[in-house]
Design a protein around this nucleic acid. Structure first.
Lengths: 224, 224
DNA sequence: CCGACGCTTCGGCCGGCGCCGAAGCGTCCG
DNA sequence: CGGACGCTTCGGCGCCGGCCGAAGCGTCGG
């Protein structure tokens, strides 16, 4: 039946250290236990305990590789739940001036789970609709299929996935929607692949728009 | 920006008493503080503290009416987050024999947030698809529009809502999908309105299928 | 083999928070 | 107006769980 232990799941996410780990894993890549300890700001032993609990709760899964153990988000359902929860969570005040530059970078372009967010994400969302690549119901038009294909996006493969194909996702900085879903993930992957965006740091969600990316987006009428 | 305090939201949901309150409020109706204290199984003072925290965190909102204070889920975003979280939460073992009758009732027919779940929910989902009222892409066919109209369901009003129109939602008891989304909520509302289902208790999510309901569903070829 | 390395398990400490009863405050009714 | 009622605030208690350092286990490299 649908009756599940909501409290257990909430408590797992509710610890600050575990939440930082999950947030880091929302980048989509698998991270080693030691790296997660560093991200969370706790000792290795403490991190190991946290990861054991997340594993037991089914929120993450682990793949052992040599003497490393790489953890990642267990599945799209977990990602969707964390994303939905982050939408209702209270905004976290920027703690220090030292972080404000980082915050500005995140506000401009970043990944939200596995798709593009921030100013660039919203601009892309608007341009796809304005340029008639996407219908208001978030389906791909013939022109959109051609255009996305030229970006290296496999639209049909995205459509075949079990997760939502394309849908709006309210952007926290912009208070306006960016694109989410399988299509958004495919587009983001292609644009990073084509070096329109580069990841600012290995463990960061912040992206930097390259000159090539700026030119490519402007060709679509996307002002950034 | 999208950076929110995931841990704070998780911690709010992570307490067993608060989770029971939220679960009770997922029925969609506003409940008084005293009733929520009874549901959670704690003293009135404790419940009041919990509700103050949920209110502060933006998960619930309150409407004062005379000497009563009615609490309800703050918005569809919160409902969606709780629903998504319940999908990844571990199943809760039935604690006692005394609860097994209750569990059986829940397994047969119940509401999941605001739509029909359980054996009846899955059967309805299958019948709507098999009877060609719904396409495999979960859009309403002309025949479906006519049939749902005769049930008193306003399909167009459901379509106009901002939430997802219709989508599958994995049923935890049945391990098969039932119908969710705005259409599912409208259908459930109409069927309760027509007394095909009656709520077993005011504070319960369990529903009872009436004779009229059984007859109506069987006319669609829905075996329950 | 033996040491370095990554990770987990164990023991013990400590702070935060969930709990209750008592008291305080506002609302409805006779 | 006084009492009943619903709810919140306050003070104090007890326990769960997050934290660390030390020790144990498996893997890689010389």
């Amino acid at each position: 039946m649908h009756d599940t232990d909501l409290a257990a799941a909430g408590a797992l996410i509710g610890d600050p250290s575990r939440a930082r780990m999950l947030d880091a894993l929302m980048g989509g890549r698998a991270l080693a236990a030691g790296e997660l300890a560093r991200v969370a700001g706790v000792g290795r032993s403490t991190a190991s305990e946290h990861l054991a609990r997340l594993l037991d709760g089914g929120l993450v899964e682990v793949v052992a590789q040599g003497r490393h153990r790489y953890y990642r988000i267990a599945g799209p359902d977990v990602g969707a739940a964390l994303e939905a929860l982050s939408h209702v969570a209270p905004p976290r005040p920027v703690a220090s001036l030292r972080q404000s530059g980082h915050a500005r970078a995140l506000g401009h372009a970043r990944t939200c789970y596995d798709h593009l967010a921030g100013v660039c994400g919203v601009a892309l969302h608007d341009a796809l609709l304005a340029g008639d690549w996407l219908t208001p119901a978030y389906d791909v038009t013939p022109a959109g299929a051609a255009g996305l294909g030229s970006w290296g996006v496999d639209v049909e493969a995205a459509r075949a996935q079990r997760r939502a194909f394309a849908r709006p996702c309210l952007d926290w900085t912009e208070r306006r929607p960016h694109l989410a879903g399988a299509l958004a993930a495919a587009i983001t992957g292609s644009l990073v692949e084509r070096a329109w965006f580069v990841r600012r740091a290995a463990d960061s969600r912040a992206l930097r728009l390259t000159d090539a990316g700026r030119a490519g987006l402007e060709a679509l009428g996307c002002v950034v």
